[in-house]
């Protein structure tokens, strides 16, 4: 029964850290006027830009191209400012979680916390079988289950609390966004 308790305990830890992280970010970032202003500005600019692109389509003249580029540049600058505002909270939560993680790591050291219903691919095995004795790769380490829980819970908590960025804004800010599409 201890295995099941450990697994559920890890889910509890992730829930706790997700709320703690969001709480800290709220205190340091989300409630500040600067963040609110920048977020609203980005949402507005993104929607405006998307609408413009939709209306203009492919056939645009030089002047319109330049205007669009200028808007894109402004949006990029705002996104950069927003990332800078978020930076201090990222550092604070980073430090707090590193300390928490190392504490839990020592508690669950060399302990099987769950049994995987599949054998992970080789480059994941280093994580899923971290600090575990033996070569049964269906045994799951603390860190692997914790990462999975965090991936699942943090995103949902952010969405429930309304702190996740809008899809349009995150799409424009993603590394896959093509800068200067209209060049």
């Amino acid at each position: 029964m201890s295995l099941q308790i450990d697994a559920l305990f890890i889910v509890g830890i992730s829930l706790f850290t997700a709320f703690l992280g969001e709480g800290m970010t709220y205190l340091l970032v989300y409630r500040t006027e600067k963040y609110k202003k920048l977020k609203a500005e980005i949402e507005k600019q993104t929607k405006k830009l998307e609408k413009k692109k939709e209306v203009l389509g492919e056939a645009i003249d030089k002047q319109q191209k330049k205007k669009l580029e200028r808007d894109e540049e402004r949006l990029k600058n705002n996104n950069r400012d927003l990332s800078l505002v978020k930076m201090k909270s990222m550092f604070a939560t980073g430090f707090a979680f590193t300390a928490l993680l190392s504490m839990f790591n020592s508690i669950f050291d060399a302990k099987v916390v769950a049994r995987l219903p599949f054998v992970p691919i080789s480059f994941i095995q280093g994580l899923s079988h971290r600090n575990l004795p033996g070569s049964d790769f269906t045994e799951c380490s603390f860190i692997f289950l914790y990462i999975l829980c965090t991936m699942s819970i943090r995103q949902n908590v952010q969405k429930i609390l309304g702190f996740s960025p809008s899809r349009a804004a995150s799409k424009n800010n993603s590394i896959f966004a093509q800068p200067g599409q209209f060049k």
């Binding site: 295995l3 697994a7 769950a114 049994r115 995987l116 219903p117 999975l148 949902n156």
Partner: peptide
Amino acid sequence: ASFLVTWIITYS
């Protein structure tokens, strides 16, 4: 990720 967590924990 949610699926994996549920699958692993239920299976265990």
